[in-house]
Structures are given as structure tokens and as C-alpha cells.
Simulated scan of single mutants.
Amino acid sequence: MYGPRRIGSVTCGIPPFAPRRLTWRQARTENPMRLPTICIPLALALAACAQPAAREQAAAPAATPAPAASVALAPGERRIKASDGAELYLKVAGRGPVCMLIHGGPGQGSLSTEKMGADKLEDFLTMVWFDQRGSGKSPDAQDYHLDRVVQDFEDARQALGVDKMCLIAHSFGGILAVEYAKRYPQHVSKLVMANTTLHFLGPENSRMQIDFVNRVLGKQAVKVAADADDAALAKARDEARAALMKSGNGYRFLSETTDSIKVMGEIDGGYARSRGFGNAIFDENAKYPEYMADYTADSAAVTQPVLVIAGSKDYAVGPDEHKRFRFPNQKVVVLDGGHISYYENNAEFVGAIREFMAER
């Protein structure tokens, strides 16, 4: 993800009213463990330069997914053209019903999710590891509006020749997946919402993180009025992040240990990644206000079966964020872990999806 003084996969979740808003480019030049504001409560990387510790992943419990009508896709990497001419990267691997990853960030890319244990889904799913425009191996583009990004998923579906696919969303990707499912319900079979949010950097997130920091530090490091408006909440949240980072515990928004962050850093730092999506959302946030809206109400329009996977110690999106969701046909699984459940709780994560996909 970065060298000794570089963060390559970090997206800085600092709203426009923050007292100091780091751009992505500024964040890459600073020591991540000393940042005055914590970069990304919702992206998948905070940082550590050390070599990753070895980690064994338990095998997922055996189960046989229910038969599903799906086209046999040729495995391998490919590049397709979106309807506006932008180039998009994807990789097909596995067997079974077709599922597309909707990664988080914004701008994270799919590779670290795939390589940190989510590739075990390929045992029973045909996974489409898709990099959103300006993310991972998909080049930067001109347009990053929500409508355009959601259309990219539809363009990819058509290019693959798939009638229906399931969506597996992580973190910020939850907003994108819900919007796709709402606009193209006829092409979505099921939806997995893993450690997702439907209100990116909203006031709920601010209060949750402020409370969390005060608990970790054992004192009321940051005070905020009960009737504080969104701007005041965001300012207090940034102060809380800075305090936790200064204490050396900034990684705890994502995980209880630095292990998963180190592993992610090694993977994301191992190739040249596009960063246009993240740059656009955070450096030009006034141009893309739709990403800061609350999409909770939209979840009520998604009638397909939905598996919600939450982390009891996920202080990026919040351990209770999933309780705001309104999917009419949802199943909730709460794992004893943080934001990166596909790695830290791999056996349970894969097992829950395997069981969900087997349900008729």
C-alpha cells in the first residue's frame, strides 16, 4: 500500500467542512500512524510498513448452493468499455452462480479483498472481481457521478452476457450496490452487504466514532453537544480521529490488531493503482454531493433476498449501522470482529455466504 513514507491505498474520509481536509495526494506523503486526522473510516487501509504476519484461515463449512441459472463465463482478466468509453477492468474466477464484488473506498479496488480470503468464495460462486472506474486496475476517468458508476456495473453485466447476478458489497460499496439493485432489480438475484454503510460520513458515523474514541482513551477527549449540527459533529469527529491517531490506536477503527492492515498494505502496494475515484470524491466533494446523502430509505425498495454481515467491533461504519437498514427480505449475521470481516472472520464470512446462496 505504501513505502516507508507513502500511503497508496488510502482514501481520506474528510468531509468538506473539516478544519483540515487532507487530499489523497497529501495523505500519501505522510506517516499514516501520525496523521492528524484518521484517513478513511470506510476505506480498507490505514497502514503499517512492517511485513504481514502469517495467518491461517479455517475452511468454510461444507454446503451445496442451490442450483441457479447462470451462464458459464470464461475465467481470466479482461478489459471492457463502458457506455461512455471509459475502460474498466475485471477478472472472472470460480464456479457457480455469478456474483460481482462492489468494493469500497471509494477507490479501493478489488485485489486486496480477493487475496485476503474472499477468493474462497470461488469454490461455489463465479466471482467477478470488478474495479470501479478510477480504482485499482481501471484507469482514471472523467465522470465519477453515482449514476455513471452504477451504469458501469450494468455495462459490465451486459459485456459478460449475464442475465442475473448477485452483488457482494463491502463498506462504501453498499451505497453503490443498493442503487444498482434499485435501478436494475431484474438483473439482481441476491445481495450481500458486508460491513457496509448507507450514509457515508453521516452524523450517525460521527457520533459513533466520537463515543468510541472517548471509550478507548478512557476520558472525554472530545465533547459534542446533543443538538450539534452536522458540521459541528464532523469537526468533533475529526478531532476524535486525531486524538486516537496520536495515541497510536488509530487502526482500531478498522481492526483490533494491525495484522490485517499490514497484509492489505502489502497487496495494495504491489501494483500501480488508479486513484481517480477517491481523488474526485474527496478533493472535489462539492461536485459529488450525492455520495454524502443517506440511502437508508432506498434499501426499502430492494426486495431481493439480502444477507447483512456486520462486525460487533467495526468502528469504521459502526457496529450498529446495519440496524438502520430497511431491506424487506434480509438476514443478519453479526460476526465478532471489525471492518475487514472477509479476512479476520474468513471462515464465518465465507460460510454465511455459502449458506445464504444455498437458500431458495
Rank of each mutant, 00 (worst) to 15 (best):
G8F: 03
G8W: 05
V10P: 02
V10C: 07
I14M: 07
P15F: 03
P15Q: 10
R20W: 13
R28V: 05
E30N: 05
T37N: 12
C39D: 08
L42M: 12
L42F: 14
L44W: 03
A47C: 08
A50V: 10
Q51A: 14
P52M: 14
P52I: 13
A54V: 15
R55Y: 10
A58V: 07
A60K: 00
P61S: 11
A63Y: 02
P65Q: 04
A69D: 14
S70I: 01
A74F: 02
G76K: 12
E77V: 15
R78C: 11
R79A: 10
A82S: 15
A82W: 05
A82G: 14
K91W: 10
G96E: 09
G105K: 06
L111D: 03
M116F: 05
A118N: 04
K120N: 01
D123W: 01
L125A: 12
T126C: 10
W129F: 11
F130C: 00
R133C: 07
G134V: 06
S138Y: 06
S138F: 08
P139F: 11
D140P: 10
A141I: 04
Y144K: 10
Y144D: 10
H145T: 15
H145P: 03
Q151Y: 00
D152T: 09
D155S: 09
L160F: 09
D163P: 01
M165D: 00
L167W: 01
H170Y: 07
H170F: 04
S171N: 11
F172P: 00
G174F: 03
I175F: 00
V178M: 05
Y180K: 04
Y180S: 00
K182C: 08
R183P: 02
Q186G: 13
L191K: 02
L191C: 07
A194F: 02
N195P: 01
F200H: 13
G202T: 05
N205C: 07
S206L: 02
S206Y: 01
I210P: 05
F212E: 07
R215N: 12
G218N: 10
Q220R: 15
A225S: 14
D227M: 10
D230G: 07
A234K: 02
A236M: 10
D238C: 13
M245G: 07
K246M: 05
K246S: 11
S247D: 15
L254G: 01
S255F: 09
E256L: 09
T257A: 11
T257K: 12
T258E: 13
K262I: 12
G265A: 09
I267H: 05
Y271V: 08
A272R: 13
S274I: 02
S274M: 06
S274P: 00
G276Q: 09
G276C: 13
F277R: 00
E284I: 04
Y288G: 06
P289A: 11
P289L: 04
T296E: 12
D298R: 06
V302S: 07
P305Y: 09
L307K: 04
V308P: 00
G311S: 08
D320P: 01
E321D: 12
H322S: 06
H322L: 02
R324M: 03
F325Q: 04
F327A: 06
K331V: 04
V332I: 14
G337S: 08
G338E: 03
H339A: 11
N345M: 14
E348D: 15
R354M: 03
F356H: 01
A358G: 05
E359Q: 15
